[in-house]
Design a protein around this nucleic acid. Structure first.
Lengths: 186, 186
DNA sequence: GTCTATAGCTAGATAGAC
DNA sequence: GTCTATCTAGCTATAGAC
């Protein structure tokens, strides 16, 4: 076995960046190849089903990230709930690079990406919703209100990423994260 | 002059639907042709610069819509401000078909679309922001707060469209519009 | 103004050498 | 595991008849 030029985790991270910024349809194999340093045939060796499989790997990687850095923390009753909230919001800021890197959801919400990955998108939204609902109930909100707050949290994050990108202004995103904090803790 | 199979307005509306749902990169000329009933060569007769020019026409058409149905109403001091707010929110619901039709912004926020239309996206956001800021100040909020509320209104609409699409649930969008109403009028 | 036909290119994908 | 070379299909775009 000849050694890999780039390990699996780093490779998926590179593919993730390209797909999130260029969109599924816009992320060509040529660009994925250039960004990763692997020729197209090498990408096919790693992902025999091509771009679809690369995107599945990216989705799985992101899903793992949020399972560890959002869901697990939100449900960790050994930690104070306010501390859990601040921790997950920090992890979210990290994932989106303070608003400079788009979410995968809009990148897969149009065109061919949506046809292929609609189910995974819905599942991802559900994971976020249940995690923030858990934080809300632990903070004392009743179940219904916690559910509404959770949904509005997702909406705010998704909307802030779109607007921050449109204005090329990360402050829009950072400000929204602060407002989310206040909406739970004040 | 042989008569057009489809008039300019209807044609732009059809192109708009395809670009908004498929994204700029995902909207192929084949699909634009099929949706409009015009062969590719006929589309080029109408838009000599191809897909770029079609998208420019769509953006201009949408810009006109919101100039008439958002900005003009927001600034129309002959009407009661609460009535203006309800009117613009109704027009927004219409434009997005109650959350069933995506915004053009995410469709142009990735890939080649972003490279070509970043400036128009930023301008569009500014028109929305100033319009809702005007409504906010006329409702008695001070300038700074009205500006923040306006930005959060855009964020909520954009985020709600993403989440509504991801869950295939228009209620998410309709609920968000109601919450926007309450945030201004209660 | 619309059409058929096609050019020219780039996309995703594969074969086979090293 | 990576590479060069190549295939085929789809893409944007154009030429020219009606």
């Amino acid at each position: 076995m000849r050694p890999s030029k780039i390990d699996d985790i780093e490779l998926v991270n590179v593919l993730s960046r390209v797909i999130r910024t260029r969109g599924y349809d816009g992320a060509s194999l040529a660009e994925l190849s250039e960004a990763s340093g692997l020729k197209k045939a090498s990408l096919y060796h790693r992902f025999p089903n091509g771009k679809t499989e690369m995107t599945e790997a990216v989705l799985k990687h992101i899903d793992n990230f949020f399972d560890r850095n959002l869901r697990e923390i939100a449900y960790d009753e050994n930690r104070k709930v306010a501390e859990r909230l601040l921790s997950v919001l920090d992890n979210i800021k990290e994932f989106y690079e303070n608003g400079g890197l788009p979410c995968i959801i809009p990148a897969l919400s149009v065109g061919e990406g949506y046809r292929l990955f609609a189910e995974q998108i819905a599942q991802s939204i559900d994971l976020w919703t249940s995690s923030f609902t858990k934080l809300g109930t632990d903070l004392g909100f009743d179940k219904a209100e916690a559910g509404l707050k959770a949904r509005n949290t997702l909406i705010k994050i998704q909307g802030a990423l779109i607007v921050a990108n449109g204005l090329q202004d990360k402050e829009v995103f950072k400000q929204s994260i602060e407002e989310i904090k206040e909406s739970y803790l004040s």
